[in-house]
Design a protein around this nucleic acid. Structure first.
Lengths: 137, 137
DNA sequence: CGGTATCCGTTGCGATACTG
DNA sequence: CAGTATCGCAACGGATACCG
């Protein structure tokens, strides 16, 4: 079953790969990079959020990276951006229907990963890996 | 349902986040970075592969990055590494049971993303985004 | 309020040469 | 064959100041 799915995926992506472009790379990158997941989960939970709310909720993000991240998510039609012509300006972000589907799959994947990590005490190993990496750099 | 799942995920990760560590970040990063997915899908499909086979199958990867990628996947127990004490040396890589589960979820997610991108002709937009990004840098 | 512009250190990664 | 070591550039991302 897995092999079959992978084979199908190989065949589906082949035409793009032959032209030197990996289609899922960008979208996967855009949802799994350092900040995107925080944005997606927050929007999935709170439904509508303003720039400042997101910034306050996502610990440590700079306005620059929040802006960049939201722009990417918007370009991929993962989030909607609604601008109100008021003074002071108001902008509301929310997940698109597509974004909700993505958020759902993403949280399933992450939950599964988290469960597995706790079962196997992999968090300890991860710390070990991090220490190893930082020491050897 | 989505909100409930996200809420559960928030609560599950909260203790880690409070200690300044995001548990899924590393694993998600380790499976969605530039090369990991290629390794995982190839291993999922061919089951057992040697270093050179992977290198030949994954277009453009340097031995350094293949080595780094495999080490990370091994550290997270996503791939198994089996070394045979022969001359010349032989090493076989394969997915762990955990890795297979992950590969399965990953290919489902990617397939879904790909299907949606084709439906909405998002590939065109992606090219536009890439051009936009490269021009504005 | 909702961003953008600029600066700059850090990291990532490719190329290449080399080794048990 | 299966990697490791070294180098160097390019991209990423953080801090901060500023703007409509």
């Amino acid at each position: 079953m897995l092999k079959k799915n992978i084979q199908k995926y190989f065949m589906d992506t082949q035409p793009y790969l032959k032209r030197g472009y990996c289609p899922t790379k960008d979208v996967l990158a855009s949802i799994t990079d350092k900040w995107s997941m925080h944005c997606i989960l927050n929007l999935g939970y709170y439904e509508k959020m303003r720039f400042g709310e997101l910034k306050r909720n996502i610990d440590g993000i700079s306005p620059r990276m929040l802006s960049v991240t939201l722009k990417r998510l918007e370009a991929f039609e993962i989030v909607n951006r609604e601008e109100f012509p008021e003074i002071p300006p108001r902008v509301e972000y929310s997940l698109s229907v597509y974004g909700e589907g993505l958020a759902s799959k993403l949280v399933q994947l992450s939950s599964w990963v988290l469960k597995r990590m706790e079962e196997k005490n992999l968090l300890i190993n991860i710390s070990a890996v991090e220490n190893y990496n930082s020491k050897n750099q």
